[in-house]
């Protein structure tokens, strides 16, 4: 009698297992989100590094930039946005926004864009590996326009009676 019950139990368990295997086999792999093209041909780091560890790079960069004024365009959130986000992207429609697209797929809620601009500025600031070259705003030396402005104000000051 006892053996009969345990046999029935085993058969039931086996059936359940087989059912589960069939159900899983019926699932197709989950499709990743459709990512948009970036401007330029090369990222600042190899793909497997940037995909896995971009948050570490950005976190390091933010402290260096905010606390010490050490700004590295290659690892700045601004650099990411300039290459990857379309000027017409919208935060309200994650599928139009490179960062939000993947983050919403992976159920990662990050707050960067509550403060940081979510779209490129009119003057692009590409990183150094982008064949389009970095924008002037990322030059460490003063650009000619600002030098001209400085000179103008110095001349204006020299000629003006205090």
């Amino acid at each position: 009698m006892g053996r009969g019950i345990s046999l029935v139990r085993m058969i039931l368990a086996g059936l359940l297992l087989a059912g589960a295997v069939f159900a899983l086999a019926g699932c197709s792999p989950v499709e990743g989100p459709q990512m948009m093209q970036a401007r330029g041909d090369q990222c600042v780091e190899p793909l497997e590094v940037i995909r896995r560890d971009h948050m570490k790079l950005l976190s390091h960069e933010k402290d260096q930039a905010v606390l010490f004024g050490v700004r590295n365009p290659n690892h700045s959130i601004r650099g990411c946005v300039e290459c990857h986000v379309s000027p017409t992207a919208s935060r309200d429609d994650p599928s139009s926004h490179f960062c939000l697209n993947c983050h919403s797929f992976n159920a990662v809620r990050m707050d960067c864009f509550q403060c940081h601009a979510d779209k490129p500025a009119n003057d692009y600031h590409f990183h150094a590996l982008n064949p389009h070259g970095p924008g002037f705003g990322f030059d460490s030396a003063a650009d000619s326009a600002s030098l001209a402005r400085d000179l103008e104000s110095i001349i204006a000051l020299e000629t003006q009676k205090p």
């Binding site: 600042v44 780091e45 190899p46 590094v49 896995r52 560890d53 570490k56 790079l57 390091h60 260096q64 010490f68 004024g69 050490v70 700004r71 590295n72 365009p73 290659n74 690892h75 150094a128 590996l129 460490s140």
Partner: peptide
């Protein structure tokens, strides 16, 4: 931490561990 100035990419020691090298500006 920032290491030599002038190099562009970071050196990956092991997956997830970096030697930060930057072409960043010198700071303040």
């Amino acid at each position: 931490i920032t290491g030599a100035v002038g190099a562009v990419a970071s050196l990956t020691v092991a997956p997830g561990i970096f030697l930060m090298q930057t072409n960043a500006q010198a700071g303040t």
